[in-house]
Amino acid sequence: MDMASPPPAVDHVDVNGEPCRVWRKGSGRPLAFLAGHGGLPKWPAFLDRLAESHEVVAPSIPGYPGGLGHTKLVDHLDWVLAVRDLLNGCGLEGGDTLLAGSGPGASFALEVAALWPHKVDRLALIAPWGLFDEAEPMTDPWGQRIPELPGMLCADPENWNALKAAPEGANSVEWPIEQTRALEASARAFWPLGNSGLEKRLGRVRAPALLLWGAEDRILPRSYGERIAAGLGGPASLQAIDGAGHLAELDRPAEVAEAIRAFFA
């Protein structure tokens, strides 16, 4: 967290009777952000940039840091309904939602837009999961040697390490369990290939979509972005972020935030 900026307001929304943390910061038209693989154990600089022109609402997906209840979810419909309930619980029930997300979070954003097209006004998506291409397989995001994982997820491994390092005063037992739980939550929803069958629902999405892809993404090839853009029922564009890996918002927070703000303006 940028120590110069004030922390976000913290609230909780119950999903299936389990509390999920909701961060809010900034003012302006509300913008919801669903986190990528690993979740958000800390408020990232990227969201500060978005908060310069929007009220950023960042709810925790069940199982991600700040959110519980992933073990109540079994099939993909359970997950999609949980994310919808989470957004509704944040007061984002109208048709003017600006919805952004990364990786698994971006995949859920697409599912919500596909199943409830009237809920979403525009979508900004960083390397969404949900498809699998045998010719260009998604890299296994779970079956990696621990020291190699940061460099698989970020162009600069230190960006992942900084997000995941226990802050001073953190509970030394619960902090690492929370980080593993986040990886488990992604696994629970997307194991083993990342393929949730999203592709066949893409045509239902009517909201205009911006797809952002780290030019150095080692998890999802850019061709997945092209397939998603081609499959969407509304207008879509694909934009590369130079110097960024799969979690582009961690590697290039200013560039990613600027692209989203321009699209949502």
């Binding site: 779970w142 040697r145 621990i146 739980r181 990886l183 488990e184 992604s186 696994a187 629970r188």
Partner: peptide, 9 residues
């Protein structure tokens, strides 16, 4: 290979 030792969950 240790990458197969501890799938999350």
């Amino acid at each position: 290979d240790p990458r197969f030792a501890a799938p999350p969950g």
